[in-house]
Structures are given as C-alpha cells and as structure tokens.
C-alpha cells in the first residue's frame, strides 16, 4: 500500500470512528424527545402525582430539583469563587498551594456516591440535619466546588495582567484591584462555570440518595429541614421500583430532567460565546 493510500485509509477510519462517537449522542437526544414528548403537557408539569404516581404530574420532583439546584448555588458559589481568587491572585508557589491544588484535583475525582456517603455521615447524622434539603444542598454544593473553582480560576487568569498593573499603579490596593478590575471581567467566565456545575448537580442521583431524596411525599417541602422529591431520584424510582409504571411517564420524566440539565449546559456555553464576541480587550 502506498503512502497516499495509507493516508486516505487513515482519514476514512478516523472519520468513521468520529461518526461512531457523535452519532449516538444525537440519537440519544432525538430518541428521548420522540419517546417522551407525548407525555408532556401542562398537567404533567404542574400537578401532584396521583394513583401511586401512575397518573397526574411530576411537579413536586421538578420543584425539588429546582430548590436543590438553588441551594447548591448558595452553598458552592461564595466559597468556590473566593477559593479561585486565592489560587489566581494570592497563591504563591509553595506547599500550601500545591496541597490545595491536589485537594481540588481529588475532589473532582471522588465518586458521586462517596459524596453521598459523606453527606449521610456528616450532615444527616453527625450535624443532625436529618434527611433534608439542607443536607442535600450541602452535599451537592461541595461536590460542585471543583468545577466552579477551576473554571473561575481560568476566567480570572484570562483577565490581562496589565489591568492589574495599571490599577495598582493608580494607587489601588490588591483587593480593590481584584474587586474593580479583575472580577467584573472574569464574571461571565465564572458564571459559565457556575451554571455548568449546577447542571451537573441538577442531574445527580447518587449524592441525594441518602441525604434528601424522598420516594414520595404528599406535600411540598416547607423548610430546609424537610425531605423533597427530586427528578433524578424520581426517574430511578419509577423506572425500577414501581411495577406497572406506564412507560410514557418514565420517558416524560427523563425528558424533563434532560431538558433542565441541557438548558443549563447550553446557557453556560451561550454566556461564554456571547461574551467572547462582545469584549473589547
């Protein structure tokens, strides 16, 4: 075989493999939409479940997921952004910094079910929060930290160094410089990371299994110490634990969950692209 033939063959094979990677993604999305769209109507989205969850809607699960996502943001955002500021602006190349970086790498790698165990041991039991929204949001929030820290640090590092030098040459302190000349420009990037982190949190099941998720509660939660239903766990429950569950409800639930996480993902990429186009430095 000549070199040219090898080259042509290689390109064809590589392209074929790429097709094998990307087509299933589209297939999954379209298949879910096609199978689930029929179940989705106003009642499905806004009503309480009825008749052993085989009829009615999934509103409490949707609401629970939104509450948990919001709680995750409250837990994760402040500390993650501050940690990113530390790494980008304050950290010197020393043992503490290396330890922190190592810790973040490891946090990112810890299995989500292990976060669930930690949440159970630390928040549900030791702290005495019980199976509650508080325990779940804390667990998801900690799990989200590494993603937010890494993207926020990258966004802060992307702000040109000269803005810092100029600001300090004008007599601004280090914190004033960060507050007025770094964070405003890094904000879109930080937001992107935050939304990406939240989209992961919204879709997670394992961390909420033992910390907050309820099989079925007839009323909506009224405080952070209540349990709540949540979409990912609800999908798990109705697809495996409830015999005779209509398939359309299962597909519909999966589709609603997918739509929530994909909306967040696309929102994040959207923020990133639009800001990259607009900025003038």
């Amino acid at each position: 075989m000549s070199r040219q033939q090898t080259q042509r063959l290689a390109v064809i094979l590589i392209t074929a493999v790429a097709v094998l990677v990307f087509i299933p993604v589209l297939l999954v999305i379209f298949y879910l939409i096609a199978s689930g769209i029929g179940a989705i109507n106003w009642e499905f989205l806004t009503a309480m479940p009825r008749n052993g969850m085989k009829e009615g809607g999934i509103m409490p699960a949707i609401l629970g997921t939104l509450i948990l996502t919001f709680g995750t943001a409250i837990v994760s955002m402040p500390v993650s952004i501050l940690a990113a500021i530390y790494l980008a602006e304050y950290a010197k190349d020393n043992r503490l910094t290396r330890t922190i970086r190592m810790a973040i790498v490891n946090l990112a790698g810890i299995p989500s079910i292990v976060y669930g165990l930690f949440g159970l041991g630390a928040f549900v039991l030791a702290a005495g929060f019980g199976t509650s929204i508080l325990a779940g949001a804390l667990t998801l929030g900690i799990m989200t930290m590494p993603v937010v820290i890494s993207t926020a640090e990258e966004a802060i590092n992307a702000v040109p160094q000269q803005f810092r030098t100029v600001s300090q040459s004008l007599g601004a302190t280090k914190w004033q410089t960060i507050r007025h000349q770094v964070l405003p420009h890094a904000l879109p990037g930080i937001l992107t990371g935050m939304i990406l982190g939240l989209s992961r949190a919204a879709g997670e099941t394992a961390p909420i299994l033992f910390t907050v998720a309820a099989f079925y509660v007839p009323t909506l939660p009224s405080s952070v110490f209540d349990q709540t239903m949540a979409l990912p766990y609800h999908l798990y429950v109705i697809s495996t634990q409830v015999p005779g569950m209509p398939l359309s409800i299962q597909y519909g639930t999966a589709l609603v969950l997918l739509m929530i996480t994909l909306t967040l993902t696309l929102l994040a990429t959207g923020v990133r692209t639009s800001v990259r186009r607009r900025r003038d430095w």
């Binding site: 000269q162 803005f163 030098t165 100029v166 600001s167 040459s169 004008l170 007599g171 601004a172 302190t173 004033q176 007025h180 000349q181 420009h185 900025r279 003038d280 430095w281």
Partner: peptide, 22 residues
C-alpha cells in the same frame, strides 16, 4: 506605561478610578 493601557470602561471611569480608590 509604554503601551497605552486604558482600563475597560468609559473615558470618565478611567479618570475617576484612581481618586475613587483613594
């Protein structure tokens, strides 16, 4: 500086930045 380095923002905000930080 050698390279003109306005801070992103308006002409006015460039000029008031130093005094405001003070």
């Amino acid at each position: 500086f050698a390279i003109p380095t306005p801070l992103p923002g308006s002409i006015r905000s460039n000029l008031t930045y130093g005094p405001q930080m003070a």
